[in-house]
């Protein structure tokens, strides 16, 4: 078996493991059970959820974003880079040749994502309050993702480095269900809960004023 095939198989198996582990994690979360809600709604949970995934994601709607625009945009670009790297990894696994424009786009997103991720890592390491709330997992996750972005960038230049990209991907996929990157699945449920809570209570979306 060639190294390329071995790595390709490794990525597929670790991806399967990752999906199964995340599914188990979700099942275990559901096993906690849902408490029924009795209080009569004042607003709309559905509108709250729409707000949570739409308007509520805009920087001026959240003080945490509006007061920290560089971090907010670094976060967005970091994730854009990650999705570009995953896309490139999948096309590599499936032996799909991408046109040059697509490769250049992947490269650009991965570069911007890497710079953003590195910036966030520096921020976490440099600011005392960030260090205070961080644990080893925060650094490992950031470094692993940064490594994937780095090797993805290199792999867009040098075909042989696709092996390195796949090797890093295997490690990352094995780590995802264990550490904080698991927020990739819980993010959506968290936002639904956010929208439901503030939507039912009539706090969000903002009620219209009556002058």
């Amino acid at each position: 078996m060639s190294l390329a095939l071995l790595l390709r198989l490794g990525v597929v198996l670790s991806a399967i493991y990752c999906l199964i582990a995340l599914t188990i994690l979700i099942a275990r979360t559901f096993s906690f059970g849902k408490q029924p809600t009795y209080a009569k709604a004042q607003g709309s949970a559905a509108k709250g959820i729409v707000y949570a995934f739409g308007q509520g994601m805009l920087p001026w709607e959240k003080e945490s974003a509006s007061k920290h625009l560089p971090t907010f945009f670094a976060g967005i670009l970091y994730h854009a880079g990650i999705f570009a790297a995953i896309f490139f990894l999948i096309t590599t696994l499936l032996l799909i040749g991408l046109p040059d424009a697509a490769i250049r786009t992947v490269r650009l997103l991965a570069v911007v994502g890497l710079l953003s991720g590195t910036g966030l890592l520096v921020k976490r390491s440099a600011l005392p309050y960030m260090r205070f709330i961080s644990c080893l997992d925060d650094y490992i996750a950031n470094i692993l993702v940064g490594l994937l972005l780095l090797v993805t960038i290199l792999a867009t230049y040098y075909y042989v480095l696709q092996f390195a990209m796949m090797a890093v991907a295997i490690v990352l996929l094995l780590y995802i269900p264990l550490g904080k990157i698991r927020h990739c699945v819980f993010f959506f449920y968290s936002r639904i809960l956010f929208g439901t809570f503030f939507g039912r209570r009539g706090t969000l979306p903002h009620p219209s004023t009556e002058d």
Binding site: F32, K34, Q35, H68, T71, R182, F187, S190
Partner: peptide
């Protein structure tokens, strides 16, 4: 409950809640 468990798994320690 489910919601609590999901949210206890969600924090990424971005620190943007600080102020």
């Amino acid at each position: 409950d489910i919601g609590d468990a999901a949210q206890l798994n969600s924090c990424v320690h971005c620190g943007l809640c600080a102020d």
